[in-house]
């Protein structure tokens, strides 16, 4: 088990290193960044001076090592727009995105899991068909549209909720629904498939033969066995939520890293963009490691396998 954990962490470290390298290469070959940083109409001499300051006149491998060295010391470079450390800028926005992601996960898991379980347990009934319609809606309406529709109905027409911005928990409701709807559908479908699959297995009939009620069989045996595919989806969905946050944060004027990403791309503040890309990649890797540890906790076949 310890060997498994160490091996998985080593793999994760290699993934993170790979991401860092790819980001560096893409940035480096996408053109001379100095030109993006100088004001229009700058003289060749000014450009050359800045290029030297930033170290872009050095050979590629020297730049790469300097970049890695900087990252190891927590130096992610300066935002040229805000004249402040890029990492600090991203970090100051992160709590908002985490808040939004948690809200969306509550919608996605809190609604998606029970809906999927009900669909599996009551398959072939009117209830399943009604829930399938909900799932299909959540999955087919794009985030920018559902966000605007929510604002129109609940803020503009009914005045129940604020249109946008941050504040108390009421501000969080609509962005969480808009962001979580797609994941909710994914959770519902995966939970349903996983449970239907498990319900058809021999151990379910054997547990019923012991005198257990269907409810007890589902709660004690089927749910745990259905968990592994659902955990896989959960790990992927957390990454998708962060990607979806870019749109939702723009629609709802939510000051998280999604909005920051759009602003930074528009103002060519590429070191901030780089930090966001690295951060999201890191979260992806971390959630997939967490999922692997969760498999091991649930399934003795993984935990005890050599």
């Amino acid at each position: 088990m310890l060997g498994y954990a160490l091996w998985r962490l080593l793999q994760a470290a290699i993934s993170v290193f790979g991401v860092i390298t790819i980001v560096f290469v893409v940035m480096h070959f996408s053109g001379d960044p100095t030109l993006l940083l100088v004001p229009q109409g700058a003289s060749a001499e000014q450009i050359e001076t800045l290029r030297h300051q930033l170290g872009f006149d050095q050979p590629v491998w020297v730049q790469y090592l300097a970049y890695l060295g900087g990252l190891l010391q927590g130096d992610f470079g300066q935002s040229v727009v805000q004249r402040a450390p890029a990492f600090g800028i991203v970090l100051s926005r992160l709590p908002y995105t985490i808040e939004l992601a948690i809200g969306a996960l509550i919608v996605a898991i809190g609604v998606g899991l029970p809906v999927g379980m009900l669909m599996a347990t009551y398959r072939g009934t009117a209830l399943e068909r009604a829930l399938a319609a909900v799932v299909l809606t959540g999955q087919s309406v794009p985030t920018f549209l559902s966000g605007i529709l929510l604002i129109m109905v609940f803020a503009v027409q009914l005045h129940w909720l604020p249109t946008s911005g941050v504040g108390d928990v009421r501000f969080l409701v609509m962005p969480s629904i808009a962001l979580g709807a797609l994941s909710m559908s994914t959770f519902a479908r995966m939970t349903r498939i996983a449970m239907v699959d498990e319900l058809g297995k021999d151990y379910v009939r054997a547990a019923l033969a012991r005198g257990l009620s269907m409810r007890a069989v589902v709660l004690r045996h089927v749910l745990r066995n259905s968990a592994i595919p659902v955990i896989t989806i959960a790990a992927l969905e957390i990454g998708n939520l962060l990607a979806g946050a870019v749109i939702v944060e723009t629609v709802f004027a939510w000051p998280g890293i999604g909005q920051l990403a759009i602003q930074s791309i528009q103002s060519r503040d590429f070191l901030v963009v780089q930090v966001i890309v690295l951060l999201i990649s890191f979260i992806y890797v971390a959630t997939s490691v967490a999922a692997d540890f969760a498999y091991a906790a649930i399934d003795p076949r993984i935990r005890l396998a050599r």
Partner: peptide
């Protein structure tokens, strides 16, 4: 199928 009749977890 005795092996399949037991909950693997």
């Amino acid at each position: 199928e005795p092996s399949a009749s037991l909950d693997p977890l």
